[in-house]
């Protein structure tokens, strides 16, 4: 089946990001496709390029990137929720006159319409929330 995940919670604040990652790996191991992980609300913090957790804790940002590289999963971040919270890719940083940027591929900033699209197109959408 084609799955999508909606993640609404910040990493390291709530368990949700860990739960979502665990669920993602398991559904892939069961032979399903994970088309997209969509990050919305505080979930956009999962895309923070500069996140530097202690070495003995799971590195969620890296784990999402690895998942995307290995399985072709799109990592889509709601642009309106991200900009408000200081999460800008190189292009948005330049557009807003900011030095440095905080989001990089494979995370991509995208519109909320994508969430509706994947939610209606995929066989299953599973939400993980704070």
């Amino acid at each position: 089946m084609r799955y999508a995940i909606l993640l609404l919670a910040a990493p390291y604040t709530n368990q949700a990001s860990h739960s979502a990652l665990r669920f993602a790996r398991t559904l892939l191991a069961r032979g399903h496709q994970l088309e997209t992980v969509f990050f919305y609300q505080e979930g956009v913090q999962n895309a923070a390029r500069l996140a530097s957790p202690p070495q003995d804790e799971p590195h969620l940002v890296d784990a999402w990137s690895a998942l995307s590289r290995e399985h072709g999963t799109a990592l889509q971040v709601c642009i309106a929720a991200a900009l408000r919270r200081g999460l800008l890719d190189e292009r948005e940083a330049a557009r807003h006159g900011k030095q440095g940027y905080s989001v990089e591929p494979p995370f991509e900033l995208t519109g909320l319409g994508q969430l509706i699209d994947i939610g209606l197109r995929c066989d299953r959408l599973i939400t993980f929330a704070p």
Partner: peptide
Amino acid sequence: FVLLTEEAEKTVSWY
């Protein structure tokens, strides 16, 4: 958990 989501038409998350 994944199996339950396979069997159900859709999943609703309460939090």
